[in-house]
Nucleic acid binder design. Structure first.
Lengths: 160, 160
DNA sequence: GTACTTTTACTCGGATACCGTCTGTCCGAGTAATTATGG
DNA sequence: CCATAATTACTCGGACAGACGGTATCCGAGTAAAAGTAC
């Protein structure tokens, strides 16, 4: 039971795209290079976020990716769902019904409600944080010089 | 990101062992048959719970498994840790440090605290429920007749 | 100089391979109760 | 009848095979900007 590394990578990718000025895009290869992920595979993740309407892709020369929604509307949870899918952590396998020989129509197993509550509790934390609130944390004093370097790099690599 | 099915199976196994009278044990094969799991593999899970001091094993003829702790002290979380291990759902892969070119000695990435909080929130729900509280839910009216069947089966299969 | 064609450089989506983990099986060894054996 | 040995029936722990999903790579197709070409 481990979260995909793709989720973390995607969050930082969105955080990177958030630094783009209006109208500019960034090549997928530049993004993956900055993230430190394999370019071809990370492109798939970017497309997943495109399907989830979190980011937009521009095809053709001078193409690339940029945010589709304002950073205040993109929650960490949205990125998680875009990459991992919306299946729950726990799905009852019917042991309860098997042991007690219940009809499948009966109420769910006694573990289901507990697990659902646990999962909701976990997701609620991820829903609380947005790209905007994360970006705000990057404005801290300790990161200022490094962020300038990053912004300069972005100005070189971004398109239009 | 999916919880192992072994966790659910183990919870029901402990719930089953909880129904044993004092001093009695149950063969691993009978347990796995009742759970509906593969006998040889489920024995490994039982041994994991044995290492976690949740249950006790009795070797030799008339051997088997029984609870080691009172049901009030066995939390669902304990079973989860026994089977899944105590690694966290998210471990920072160093993207943050890589992007900002920070020394590894600096504070953790901005996602770490959020993920830790989410995981703690999730675990707290699992720590709340115990085998005793789960067993109590099985005393509900709707299960009474089926539980009698289960208890009768247990009286036949249990040893000493 | 304008309209058209070709080239270039991206994204898109599928097919495929790799690899680690969970699941499942098998085996020899250890342990204790039962049974068999010898006196 | 009693003590000892052999058998039986469990657990223990490791080795190993199979299935599955996440990761990673490659390819042809689609798209749009740029460059080249013709008039």
């Amino acid at each position: 039971m481990k979260m995909k590394t793709g989720v973390e990578q995607s969050v930082y990718a969105v955080l990177l795209l958030n630094m783009l000025p209006e109208g500019a895009v960034l090549h997928s290869e530049e993004i993956s290079r900055q993230i430190g992920a394999s370019p071809t595979y990370f492109q798939k993740l970017l497309r997943k976020m495109g399907s989830a309407e979190l980011i937009t892709s521009v095809p053709g020369t001078k193409g690339g990716f940029k945010l589709k929604q304002p950073p205040e509307d993109i929650r960490v949870y949205d990125i998680y769902v875009a990459i991992e899918g919306h299946q729950s952590l726990y799905t009852p396998s019917g042991i309860f019904e098997g042991m007690l020989e219940l009809d499948d129509e009966d109420d769910q197993c006694i573990l289901g409600s507990l697990m659902d509550e646990a999962e909701d509790s976990w997701k609620s934390v991820l829903k609380r944080e947005t790209i905007a609130s994360l970006a705000e944390k990057l404005q801290a004093e300790q990161y200022s010089s490094r962020m300038d370097v990053l912004r300069k790099w972005l100005n070189e690599k971004m398109v239009v």
